[in-house]
């Protein structure tokens, strides 16, 4: 498993005294890094798309049945005031609402890898749209 960037920076700092040929600094990354990070992100988008077209609850209903290409999910507008919840809500709150109600399933923890994947997918389908927090 590749090290995260901060961990690698610490290792580099320790090694600086001993090794004169220094590897990349904390603020440097290469084309290969970019490619690898994008690949990791797109893998998660792909997992999100798979979850989107599968039943997440008990009745076989999938997200894609009402939201082809994740349309009408408006991730760029969250957090926003949701009058039916009486508070400012996250897009994850709305995803869980849909899992519980139309899909008749159990809500996910906010850091559930499936929740991360679903958000990666809907944001990816919405790429290029300006951020509009709070918009209705």
């Amino acid at each position: 498993m590749p090290l995260s960037r901060p961990t690698r920076s610490v290792l580099v700092a320790f090694a600086v005294g001993a090794v004169s040929l220094s590897p990349a600094q904390a603020d440097e990354f290469s084309q290969e890094d970019l490619k690898r990070w994008e690949g990791q992100f797109m893998d998660v988008v792909k997992q999100g798309r798979e979850l989107w077209t599968k039943a997440l609850g008990a009745n076989g209903v999938s997200c894609a049945q009402c939201h082809p290409n994740a349309a009408n999910t408006h991730p760029e507008t969250y957090p926003k005031f949701q009058k039916q919840l009486g508070k400012v809500a996250l897009v994850a709150d709305m995803i869980n609402w849909c899992i519980r109600n139309p899909a008749e399933g159990q809500p996910m923890a906010l850091d559930d890898p499936r929740m991360v994947a679903i958000q990666a997918y809907i944001n990816y389908e919405r790429r290029g749209v300006p951020m509009a927090p709070g918009k209705h």
Binding site: C66, P68, N69, A71
Partner: peptide
């Protein structure tokens, strides 16, 4: 059963 989004709302 359910409404569908208008195709114009698909940003891609």
């Amino acid at each position: 059963a359910w409404p569908w989004p208008y195709p114009s709302t698909y940003a891609q």
